Amino acid sequence: MKALADFVFEAGMLKKMVRTGYAFLGGGRETVAEHSFRAALIGYWLALEQPGLDAARVALMLLHHDLAEARTGDLNYVNKRYCQADEAKALDHATRRLAPALAGRVRELVEEFNAGQSPEAQLAHDADQIDFMVELKEQWDQGNPNAERWLFYALKRIRTQAGRQLAEAVLEAKWSDWWFEDREELWVRNGDRQPR
Rank of each mutant, 00 (worst) to 15 (best):
Q161N: 06
D177G: 04
T160M: 07
N114M: 03
H35K: 11
M17I: 01
Q122C: 14
T20N: 12
N144L: 11
Q122F: 06
F9D: 07
R105P: 00
R157G: 01
E87D: 13
N76M: 02
G73R: 10
L171H: 03
M1N: 09
A99Q: 13
A3F: 03
A162N: 03
D141F: 09
E120D: 06
A169Q: 15
V8F: 12
S176N: 14
V106M: 03
A23C: 00
G73K: 09
D86A: 14
R57A: 13
W45C: 08
A162H: 07
H64S: 15
R159C: 05
G116F: 05
R19D: 04
N190H: 13
F24C: 00
R96H: 14
K80L: 07
N144Y: 02
A121M: 08
D54L: 05
S118H: 10
A173T: 05
G27W: 00
E69H: 12
R96T: 08
E10D: 13
Q50A: 08
V170T: 03
D126Q: 05
F152K: 14
G143R: 09
A127E: 05
V170C: 02
N144P: 03
Q165S: 12
L123M: 15
T95R: 05
A39L: 03
A68M: 01
L171G: 09
A173L: 07
Q117Y: 01
L91K: 02
A121G: 04
E138P: 00
A85M: 05
F9V: 09
A55H: 08
A70D: 01
W187S: 10
L102W: 05
Q122V: 07
E112C: 01
A55D: 13
V58T: 05
D131I: 00
E10C: 04
F37M: 08
D192K: 11
I158L: 10
F113A: 11
A162G: 11
D54I: 04
A33V: 00
A88L: 12
A56F: 01
G163C: 07
L136A: 04
G26Y: 07
A3D: 14
R71D: 03
R97F: 11
K80F: 01
I130Q: 02
A167H: 06
T72E: 06
M133E: 05
G12T: 06
P51W: 09
T20F: 01
R183I: 09
W178Y: 12
T95A: 03
E138A: 13
A40H: 10
R107Q: 14
K174M: 01
V32A: 10
K156I: 01
V32Y: 02
Q50L: 02
V110S: 03
Q117H: 11
A88R: 14
E148H: 09
D6S: 12
A85I: 07
C83N: 03
F9W: 05
K89Q: 13
G191M: 08
H64T: 14
M13R: 15
N114S: 07
E30G: 01
L102D: 05
H93T: 06
T95C: 14
F9P: 00
H35C: 10
L62R: 07
L48R: 14
P119V: 10
A11C: 10
S176Y: 15
E168F: 04
N146D: 00
V32D: 01
W150I: 08
N190P: 00
Y82H: 15
M13P: 00
A33F: 04
G163D: 07
K80S: 12
R149Q: 10
F37Q: 08
S36G: 04
T72R: 02
A33C: 01
